[in-house]
Nucleic acid binder design. Structure first.
Length: 658
RNA sequence: GCCGGCGUGGCGCAAUUGGUAGCGCACUCGACUUGUAAUCGAGCGGUUAGGGGUUCGAGUCCCCUCGCCGGCUCCA
């Protein structure tokens, strides 16, 4: 056998190695237990892959993003094998790795019960322990069809591969080019235990799945279309170690504690009375206090940035949405109309833009007025499908902090740049720091306007986005029907991303509504329109902030900023005086004069996540002082009242977290 | 909209094989007056989401409706 020369690449370091021809990646990384696959010439391969002369080989370790995905993909196979062991009639769908885990879809006679899932997890554990080998085998389409005659969904995927090439939804199973089947072989006898159509790669044996858990089951449409049959999907997770799995489960528990629906009830912020209807929230006094601060600060900043405030009604005749085109696209998502005034259809308003356009159109407009920036906290109603309403993040009645900017063509680049800067600046003031931008382009098949208009609008947005010194991600086909959009994606305190602000360039509605202004040369010109929501919706942004801060809002946003806690009843009047001083300066302060003991009052305020507790007993009273207790449990005693007031005011005015 | 799960006082939970609803927190009243996360006692509060059925008897079993939860689809 001849020798071949290969390059082992580790990060920036490359190492030349001479090995026997036919040497596998596994042999190359012999003894490196964390290596579970390799990238050969840029393509992910099994460790059993034989190397060829000139190959550049990179190890893929189990704790890398690619490595985890491979472990999860392999674990999905094990779960599928377990399911078919326990439910021989189950037909396989697809089973890809996803963020933090994997799923596998099955066509089964009845949905899985919690007990079924326990049994599946147990069986999967046995399979993992048995150390079955993942063995790759290239097959022709016809061979695959013959072998998988009992797996109708797999057959369909093979058909997709030959017709559509690299179909995204089928890619994990069949990939592009050659078709492969992975056999799971018994380590001792070599006997075939299970097999699945799959592109791979996989870990060498099931023992290379260090830690996993079956999480839940849910229905999912085959190939993501509601016209297709529903399959039963099992979600699971897998990690490089038991510790990593534990940490992940801990993260899930933390996220659950931050759930805004839970915090909303615990902190008495809002509720969804069933008497009102799904997706229709009421804000309680404390939630109302937060909203008011959010809105007031936003208003102030909008005034500073040259916006003008408008107000528009909540219902309208259908004409508006016929002209705008919303009725063509979104009639299903609107509340059905009421017939009034002898036959006119009145709709609850699902969008503010047409109304703002009518304000623009209410009189002749001059170029001197542009850019005209109209802003409104506009409440709209959308008939979201019953299965999708979710806390405050997906509701049926919502308030957009909606602005429409009307400007001349040559003002667009400057206006887009400044609105992006404005948006990002304001989001930072609310405590979000980590952003990236997403550019959504024309949605195929459901868009109005010419290719040229779309291209121009998209390019304008791209230029504005590229000036912001932020990562820009493309979202092909994700735009609205009337124009492309930039969305601002923000990461929260536990690393989840939320789509917040959207900025859209719209060439269409100004045409549809025949908007004009008079230019300097006396001609009539068509204005350009930018749609912009900053929070997106107040309700949703409220929820995001609540989860970001885990309910412990920074003092400027906290519904109750200060609670006075007397050591005994005698000290209530003294604290009432302190509270009055704070209240005069606009601080939201309460004195707990209940007949609870002082310790209990501290506990109560702590659980309500109040930023400042001010305690006062004889010692403080005699010195004209108060004692601070902060949310983290630390305290500062004997602070002169004026100093305490000044400190609280300072923190609130600077909008910092404590 | 689709699939599955769930629905017990304001909140969190309990109630052996169907036998007639209980606890903690909160709330009200009383006592206590205390220096940094729960004082003690008493009391109020439920047609077990709503409706129908099976049964001598239903919170427990069956059906329908409503709502919530987890997903899918959707998201102007």
């Amino acid at each position: 056998m001849s020798d071949v020369r290969v390059t082992v690449q580790r990060g920036q370091q490359a190492e030349e190695r001479v090995v026997r021809a036919g040497t596998t990646a596994a042999e190359l990384f012999d003894g490196e237990r964390s290596v579970i696959a390799a990238r050969v010439g840029g393509r992910q391969r099994d460790l059993a892959h034989p190397l060829a002369a000139g190959d550049v080989v990179e190890p893929i370790t189990v704790d890398s993003p690619d490595g985890r995905a491979i472990v999860r993909h392999s674990c999905a196979h094990v779960v599928a094998q377990a399911v078919q062991d326990l439910f021989p009639k189950a037909k396989l769908g697809i089973g890809p790795p996803i963020q933090d885990g994997f799923y596998y879809d099955f066509d089964v006679e009845r949905p899985f019960t919690p007990e079924d899932l326990k049994a599946v997890e147990k069986r999967a554990q046995e399979i993992i322990k048995s150390g079955q080998r993942f063995s790759r085998r290239v097959v022709t389409d016809d061979e695959a069809r013959a072998e998988l005659a009992d797996e109708p969904y797999k057959i369909e995927l093979i058909g997709l591969k030959s017709s559509a090439g690299d179909d995204a939804e089928a890619s994990v199973e069949v990939g592009a080019g050659e078709l492969t089947i992975y056999d799971n072989l018994d380590p001792k006898s070599g006997e075939l235990c299970w097999k699945d159509l799959c592109r791979g790669p996989h870990v060498p044996t099931t023992r290379h799945i260090p830690a996993f858990a079956v999480q839940r089951s849910a229905a999912a449409y085959w190939r993501g279309s509601e016209r297709n049959p529903q399959l039963q999907r099992i979600y699971g997770t897998a990690w490089e170690s038991r510790e990593a799995l534990k940490e992940y489960q801990h993260r899930l528990a933390e996220a659950e504690k931050r759930d805004h629906r839970r915090l909303g009830a615990e902190l008495d912020l809002f509720s969804f009375p069933t008497e009102i209807g799904p997706g229709l929230a009421v804000f309680h006094p404390k939630g109302g206090a937060i909203r008011t601060v959010m809105e007031d600060y936003s208003r102030r900043r909008h005034i500073e940035a040259g916006y003008e405030f408008v107000n528009t009604p909540h219902i309208t005749k259908s004409d508006l949405y016929e002209i705008s085109g919303h009725l063509d696209w979104f009639a299903d998502g609107m509340y059905p109309p009421m017939q009034l005034d002898g036959g006119a259809d009145y709709y609850l308003k699902p969008m503010n833009c047409p109304m703002h356009i009518l304000i623009f159109r209410s009189r002749g407009r001059s170029y001197r007025e542009l850019p005209l920036r109209l802003f409104e906290f506009g409440t709209v109603y959308r008939y979201e499908k019953s299965g999708v309403v979710h806390g405050l993040t997906r509701v049926r009645g919502l308030t957009q902090d909606d602005a429409h900017l009307f400007c001349a063509r040559e003002q667009l680049p400057e206006e887009l740049d400044s609105v992006l800067k404005f948006v990002l600046g304001l989001l930072r003031d609310y405590g979000l720091e980590d952003f990236y931008l997403e550019l959504s382009t024309r949605p195929e098949g459901k868009a109005i306007g010419s290719d040229e208009e779309w291209a121009e609008a998209t390019e304008l947005l791209r230029e504005a986005a590229s000036k912001q010194d932020l990562e820009l991600v493309m979202d092909e086909g994700g735009g609205a029907f009337y124009g492309p959009k930039i969305s601002v994606q923000a990461k929260d305190a536990i690393g989840r991303t939320w789509q917040l602000s959207t900025i859209q360039v719209d060439f269409q509605l100004p045409q549809r509504f025949d908007m004009t202004y008079q230019a300097a040369d006396g001609t009539r010109q068509r204005p350009f329109m930018i749609h912009r929501a900053l929070f997106g919706t107040i309700e949703r942004f409220f929820a995001i902030l609540l989860e970001h801060y885990a309910g412990a809002l920074p003092p400027w946003l906290a519904p109750v900023q200060v609670v006075g806690i007397p050591i005994t009843d005698e000290h209530v009047p003294y604290l009432a005086d302190v509270a009055a001083k704070l209240r005069e300066r606009g601080i939201r302060v309460e004195v707990d004069s209940s007949d609870d003991r002082m310790q209990k009052k501290i506990r109560t305020a702590q659980k309500q996540k109040v930023p400042f507790m001010l305690l006062a007993g004889d010692e403080d009273v005699s010195k004209g002082a108060v004692s601070f207790r902060f949310r983290d449990g630390t305290q500062r005693n004997g602070v002169p009242v004026d100093e305490a007031v000044a400190e609280i005011l300072d923190v609130v005015e600077r909008r910092v977290q404590v």
